Simulated assay, not measured.
Amino acid sequence: MAALIASRLAKTIWDEFKVKPSSVTLWTDAQIVLHWLRTESINMKPFVGVRVAEIQGTWSPEHWRYVPTHLNPADDISRGIATADINGRWMHGPSFLKEDKDIWPTEPSQTVKVDTECKTVKYICVVQKKEPVVDAERFSSWQRLLRVTSYCFRFIHNIRRRSQDRLDGPLHSSEVEEARLYWIKEAQQYMDDWKTRLLDLNHFVTSDIIRVGGRLKKSQLPYESVHPILLPSDHHILKLIMRDFHAKSCHAGTERTLCDSRREFWILRGRQIAKNIVSKCTMCRKLRQPPHSTLMGDLPSDRLRPFEPPFSVTGVDLFGRFFLKYGKNQSKKAWGAIFTCATSRAVHLEIVDNLSTEAFLQALRRFFISSWMATHHHLRQRNVIYWSTKRAEGFGQ
């Protein structure tokens, strides 16, 4: 407030002078006031900032100088003075004003360390997010994403070159590899704490790409397999990469898909991603769909006779052909007749020389002789079922 009153008073006196003085000097014994006057008022709190702005609008900081407290005559009245001393420094001013300016008091070199009247500085910065060349979320194929990215890079390359240096025609392998490395680096940007995490993987950086260490340096495997690329699990391209390996492995299971992917990439939580890809694969769901099962009808009454002897109800069918060896170097074609008990599921086999009726009847007679208890026979030959209820002893008649 004292500095503000001095500024207003000096401005009033300046305006009343018809002949303006060559210079105006304002004095204060408060170093903090000098610090405020040399600071922009916008950086100060409202109470001090408004008054500092008014002073700065009237007098520049060069008009202000420092006077020590013991040489300041303004303190004589505020601190008390004898009436005999009023006619001294209070009326005529300090004695150093009559001396040369070079010997006037100077401001100490000590600066203000803490200023409570200054506003707290809040740093505001604009963070511009670097967008990728294309939006990977719009793609469902890893190979298609690489091709589209390669064409984008070719377009950027061509607009910066002359017509004779531009690229055209099909994509080169180097262009696809450039797009592949670009998306790998883009995905690895999400791994902010990779230096402190996953120390057991012994990871390292080569060509701006994070790779996994290991103990296979002396093996004959390719470098990509010995030191696979480390990738996070929360980027969209990880799903595309895993889906691509799943398709290349002919829609194999989770473990095979994960094994193939680790030949080039070490994906965090890779087994979970592979399991998710396999479970949602349309082709795998079709191939692994269980067959449709239908409800079977009721068993016939002939199959439900648990207390009857074996072969009471018998079914018969032919199988073959096969060759029977007899003699020294001779063989003969033959077929087999299988007789099955409908109740106990017992089996009886007979050899049939040919597909004639006589050969089958002979096999049937041999069966009746060995299984004389058979009463019901289900004969199936060429998809025709014959029912017989004759007794074995009457079959030959």
Rank of each mutant, 00 (worst) to 15 (best):
M1H: 14
T12R: 13
I13G: 02
F17N: 04
F17D: 01
V19G: 01
D29N: 14
Q31L: 15
Q31D: 06
I32E: 08
H35F: 03
R38T: 06
E40P: 05
S41N: 08
I42R: 13
M44E: 03
P46V: 12
I55N: 00
W64S: 01
R65Q: 09
Y66I: 08
V67P: 03
V67K: 13
T69P: 02
H70A: 06
L71R: 13
A74P: 01
D76I: 12
I77A: 10
I86E: 09
S95N: 03
L97S: 04
W104G: 00
P108F: 13
Q110K: 14
V112P: 02
V112E: 08
V114S: 10
E117K: 13
C118Y: 11
K119G: 02
K119M: 09
T120P: 03
Y123W: 13
Q128H: 11
K129P: 01
E131Q: 12
E131S: 04
D135R: 15
F139T: 03
S140T: 15
C152I: 08
R154H: 12
F155W: 14
I156L: 12
Q164S: 09
G169Q: 13
H172K: 15
S173H: 12
S173E: 11
A179Y: 14
L181Q: 11
D193G: 04
T196M: 02
D200G: 06
L201N: 04
H203C: 12
I209H: 05
G213H: 08
G214A: 09
L216G: 01
K218I: 08
S219F: 14
S219V: 11
P222Y: 15
Y223A: 04
L230W: 05
L231A: 06
L238Y: 00
L240P: 02
M242N: 05
R243Q: 09
H246F: 11
E255F: 15
E255T: 14
L258Y: 11
L258T: 04
S261V: 15
R262H: 09
W266F: 14
A274I: 10
M283W: 11
C284N: 07
Q289E: 01
P291G: 05
P291H: 13
S301A: 13
R303G: 03
L304H: 05
F307T: 07
P310Q: 14
F311K: 06
S312P: 00
G315H: 12
L318W: 14
G320H: 10
F322P: 01
F323D: 03
F323G: 00
G327A: 09
S331G: 01
G336M: 13
A337N: 05
A337T: 10
I338V: 14
T340R: 08
T343K: 00
I351H: 04
D353E: 10
N354A: 05
S356A: 05
E358C: 00
E358L: 02
L361H: 00
R365Q: 06
F367W: 11
M373Q: 15
H377P: 00
Q381F: 15
R382V: 07
R382M: 05
S388P: 00
S388Q: 04
